[in-house]
Simulated scan of single mutants.
Amino acid sequence: MSNYYQSPNNSQPFGPAPQPQQQPVIMVAANRNRALGIIMVVLMVLLVAVLGLIGWLYFNRTYQGHAPVLLKNQDEIETTAPVNNAAPAPQAAAPAAPVTVTVPAPAGNSGASNSSNSGSSSYDALTIPATRCSNYAYAGTNGSDFVSVCNDGGYTYKAYVNDGYLERPASAGGSGRFVVDASPHTITVSGAAVFVQDSSGNTVLTVPMTNWRG
């Protein structure tokens, strides 16, 4: 059989007879790859769903097992938590400024310099080691309490009263008196007595000096 055909108007061969076209092999491979891709996507979705279900079941079981303990601990915390209902402590008031009060010397003992009711007693006889001075401005005692004022370029008050010792700077208050700032109190040494006043000027303690020398 000839591979050429004739034209309708001519009996001579016109050219080779047309051949039927074949399907490309690449289209078959593409369709196969597409099907495999769809199958893989479906398998991945199923795997994720299964893993999610397993995780949810495990979490739900674990939470149900520990939930009572968590609630119990929370109840204990709420029950045993300390409650501070105490009112805040009031702030301490600032100490009042000391008020110096001049107290006149008792009658018969003016407290003037070089005055005395101790006769010929020396200053050291009116003191103890804790209240002694190298230069005295005043010394007095009642046998159990001892007070002295030293004059060493400045006045210093030394006292052993009621089994307690106190030493403070002092200043001359006139007429042989000496004033000591012992905030919040003020001490006045005046001849035959030592007076202690509070910040309001009220006398809170009087210490008589039966033997004294100024």
Rank of each mutant, 00 (worst) to 15 (best):
A35H: 02
M44C: 11
V194A: 01
N3Q: 09
P88R: 06
V180E: 00
V42Q: 00
M40V: 00
S134L: 07
Y4S: 13
C133E: 05
N142H: 11
V189Y: 00
Q64E: 12
S2M: 05
V41H: 03
N151D: 11
P20H: 03
D198K: 05
G174F: 04
K158Y: 01
T210K: 01
N114I: 15
N10E: 12
A192H: 06
A30K: 00
D181T: 13
S118I: 02
N162R: 12
A139D: 04
Q74N: 10
P90H: 01
N109P: 11
A97S: 14
W56Y: 11
V204K: 01
A159I: 01
N114L: 15
L47M: 00
V147I: 07
V69S: 06
S199K: 10
A29E: 14
F146N: 10
Q19L: 11
S110W: 11
I39H: 03
Q19C: 08
L36N: 04
Y136K: 10
G214Q: 15
Y123R: 09
Q6A: 14
T210M: 04
S115W: 08
L70F: 07
S115M: 13
T62I: 14
Q22M: 12
Y138T: 12
V25W: 04
P129W: 07
A112S: 10
P169T: 03
N162D: 13
V189S: 07
A107N: 13
E76H: 08
Y63F: 07
S7A: 13
Q6S: 13
F146R: 09
A94C: 06
I38R: 00
P184N: 00
P13Y: 09
N33M: 14
V180K: 01
S115V: 08
G214N: 15
P16F: 05
S199V: 04
P8E: 14
W212D: 05
Y4Q: 15
R177V: 02
S122L: 04
S118C: 03
V161N: 04
R168H: 12
P8H: 15
N73T: 11
G154A: 08
G143K: 10
A92C: 00
P184K: 03
A81W: 07
D124Y: 08
S2C: 00
V50P: 05
N162I: 08
W56S: 02
F14T: 09
V207C: 02
G37A: 15
R177E: 01
Q74Y: 09
V103D: 00
A81N: 06
V42M: 02
I39T: 11
R61M: 09
D145G: 09
I54T: 02
V194L: 05
T188Q: 04
G52M: 06
P90E: 00
T100M: 14
G37T: 12
R132E: 07
G140H: 14
V25N: 10
A92M: 04
V189Q: 08
V194S: 03
P13K: 13
